[in-house]
Design a protein around this nucleic acid. Structure first.
Length: 437
RNA sequence: CGGGGCGUAGCUCAGCCUGGUAGAGCAUUGCGUUUGGGACGCAAGGGCCGAAGGUUCGAAUCCUUUCGCCCCGACCA
């Protein structure tokens, strides 16, 4: 993408409404624009990050065996009347009425709809277990939205639902999803820790929230440093193996980790002093086992092996996709701007042509751009070098390929790694190789 | 939902108390000089001062109502 023709409106000054780093940087880097309280338009760079986060979430859900579907944003109120939540959910639910005076709502979550889909489609125990997920915009009419996309009213969420024949099966699904979550957050460049949690309006009696460590997080957290040593991407756990899932789950839940509300000073005493870690955290995911809370009142049954109806046990699993964009920035930024992890960066590299219009720099920059496209942003604006450097740091591309008249004369460019600040003077070929890794 | 604050140029803000022809910096456009870390000079464009009522000879400024946004708390993917 050529920056001169892009809707990436960077700001030199900080908009007054933003108080935390990620919100400030998302506005300054031209990722999003606020349209109303807690409602944002995603501009090209932001949209690319959002798509990258969604892609990684999707890949890990697929690996965990969940089927991707897409449910509507608007749901009929009757479905929610069946579960009793139409009355229970309160003011956070955005209620709508259509021209025929039918009650609708903008979905804050989809337990009822999934239960409805399954009760209409599944008849036999032999069709279970199953799980489905979708990545869709949700709306919760928060009294007080804040922190940009970290706490918006409209937000993109991945929500998955498991349907098992019995409790034992549901527990396996729950543990499998927990492993998928750990791998997801790891790939996003985040250290997430599962902590025992309240179930809130979703209901149920088994729940963990996933806390990402970030200095500006909303809640104070306490955890054992043992969490930092685990490599979730290694072959240590086979997501298909029940034995591995059990081993994984045991390991997860025996290492101490708690948010401030759940902090247990007595258990904390048992953690070796050298391993005690205290910090701030952001909730980026939440998983629930809620048994028959929806299947029972909504009449979801399948025929069991003996022909008798069985009421399935269900769970639901959420990841705040749009919130993650903010969380990632909270964890990866400095005074100058964002430092995107490679996995989610809107562009792998930015090419800085320091002397736009110069025959040599133009030619080299164009050549690099063609080689990197479409993963590169070409800063071809007729701007001073300082402006380009500042915007490149602000946008946070993992690599900056600096094409200046000085090196260009000798066929050399400078490669800067945003995360570390390392710079290397390289030939064009070497730069291509390094960035394309 | 309780408490507080703010709406003036694209952005950050001054002006309001004490009513009298709407300002600054940055950004934008043009010209010139500059040119490896957010340049300089000159010139130009850009505002129904959130909206509606009211008071007044006269309202960005005073009064009333209303809408929007932000912050603290309670609540949350």
């Amino acid at each position: 993408m050529r920056l001169s023709r892009s809707l990436i409106p960077t700001l030199k000054e900080t908009p007054a409404e933003a108080t935390i780093a990620s919100h400030r940087l998302m506005l300054r880097a031209g990722l999003v624009r606020q349209e109303a309280a807690g409602i944002y338009a995603w501009l090209p760079a932001g949209q690319r990050v959002l798509a990258n986060v969604a892609r990684i979430v999707r890949e890990q859900q697929n690996e965990a065996g969940a089927q991707e579907i897409l449910m509507p944003t608007i749901q009929p109120a009757d479905l929610w009347r069946e579960s009793g939540r139409y009355e229970d959910y309160g003011q956070e639910m955005l209620r709508i009425r259509d021209r025929h005076d039918r009650d609708l709502l903008y979905g804050p979550t989809n337990e009822e709809m999934v239960t409805d889909l399954y009760r209409n489609a599944v008849r036999s125990y032999r069709e279970l277990p199953q799980s489905v997920y979708h990545i869709q915009w949700k709306f919760r009419d928060e009294v007080r939205p804040r922190f940009g996309v970290m706490r918006g009213r409209e937000f993109l969420m991945k929500d998955a639902y498991s349907i098992d024949l019995d409790y034992a099966g549901a527990v396996i699904s729950y543990r499998r999803m927990m492993l998928a979550y750990m791998r997801t957050f790891q790939r996003l460049g985040l250290s997430a820790i599962p902590m025992v949690a309240d179930t809130g309006p979703i209901g149920g009696d088994l729940s963990h929230e996933f806390i990402v460590l970030a200095p500006t997080g909303e809640s104070e957290v306490y955890y054992d440093a043992a969490f930092e040593a685990i490599d979730w991407t290694s072959g240590e756990y086979d997501i298909e193996s029940q034995a591995d899932l059990d081993r994984f789950y045991t390991r997860m839940t025996t290492i101490y980790a708690a948010t401030e509300e759940k902090h247990d000073p007595r258990a904390w005493e048992q953690v070796a002093p050298a391993s005690r870690r205290q910090g701030r955290g952001i909730e980026v995911g939440h998983i629930f086992y809620f048994g028959q809370k929806y299947s029972r009142p909504m009449g979801l049954t399948v025929a069991g092996p003996d022909g008798a109806p069985v009421i399935p046990h269900m769970g639901s699993y959420g990841i705040g996709v749009s919130r993650l964009v903010g969380a990632i920035i909270e964890a990866h930024h400095d005074e100058a701007g964002i430092k995107w992890p490679d996995s989610v960066a809107p562009f792998r590299a930015v090419i800085l042509n320091l002397k736009q219009g110069d025959a040599t720099t133009n030619q080299i920059a164009e050549r690099l751009y063609q080689a990197f496209a479409p993963d590169a942003l070409y800063d071809d604006r007729d701007e001073r070098a300082g402006v380009k450097f500042a915007d490149a740091d602000l946008l946070g591309h993992p690599w900056q390929v600096i094409v200046g008249p000085r090196g260009a004369a000798n066929g050399r460019v400078e490669l800067k790694r945003r995360a570390t600040g390392e710079r290397h003077d390289l030939t064009i070929e070497d730069a291509l190789t390094r960035v394309c890794v």
